[in-house]
Simulated assay, not measured.
Amino acid sequence: MDTAHFSKPQATILIIDDVPDNINVLHRFLCQAGFRVLVAYDGEDGIATAEYALPDLILLDVMMPGRDGFSVCHHLKQQTITAEIPIIFMTALTDIEHKVKGFHSGAVDYITKPFQQEEVLARLTTQLSLRQAQQQLMQRNRELDAYAHTVSHDLKNPLSAIISLSDLLLESLSPNKTPSERQLRELSFIRQAGQQAVNIIDALLLLAGVSRQKTVQLIELDMLSIMHTVIEQRLDLFIKRYHGVIELPAYCPNALGYAPWVEEIWVNYISNGLKYGGSPPKLRLGATPEENGHVRYWVRDNGPGLSKEETATLFKPFNRLEQTKKVDGHGLGLSIVQQIVERLGGQVGVNSQLGHGSEFYFILPGCHRH
Rank of each mutant, 00 (worst) to 15 (best):
Phe6Ala: 01
Leu14Thr: 00
Val19Ser: 04
Pro20Arg: 08
Pro20Ser: 11
Ile23Ala: 06
Ile23Pro: 02
Asn24His: 09
His27Ile: 02
Ala33Arg: 06
Gly34His: 04
Arg36Phe: 00
Val39Phe: 02
Glu51Asn: 05
Ala53Lys: 10
Pro65Asp: 05
Val72His: 12
Thr82Leu: 06
Pro86Arg: 04
Ile87Cys: 03
Met90Asp: 00
Thr91Leu: 04
Thr94Asn: 14
His98Ile: 03
His98Met: 09
His104Leu: 14
Ile111Asp: 06
Ile111Leu: 06
Gln116Gly: 01
Glu119Thr: 09
Val120Tyr: 00
Ala122Glu: 05
Arg123Gln: 10
Leu130Val: 11
Arg131Val: 03
Gln132Arg: 07
Leu137Glu: 10
Gln139Glu: 09
Asn141Ser: 07
Tyr147Asp: 11
Val151Phe: 07
Asp154Thr: 10
Leu165Trp: 12
Leu170Tyr: 02
Ser172Gln: 15
Asn176Ile: 12
Asn176Thr: 11
Ser188Leu: 09
Gln192Tyr: 03
Leu205Tyr: 01
Leu206Phe: 05
Leu221Asn: 08
Ile226Met: 10
Gln233Tyr: 07
Gly244Ala: 14
Glu247Ile: 11
Tyr251Lys: 13
Cys252Asp: 06
Tyr258His: 12
Tyr269Met: 14
Ser279Asp: 14
Thr288Cys: 11
Glu290Met: 15
Glu291Trp: 07
Gly293Ala: 05
Trp298Phe: 14
Trp298Gln: 03
Val299Gly: 02
Asn302Ile: 02
Asn319Ala: 14
Gln323Cys: 08
Asp328Met: 10
His330Gly: 10
Gly346Gln: 04
Gln347Met: 08
Val348Cys: 13
Leu354Val: 15
Leu354Met: 13
Gly355Phe: 11
Gly355Trp: 10
His356Phe: 12
Ser358Gln: 03
Tyr361Leu: 04
His370Asn: 14
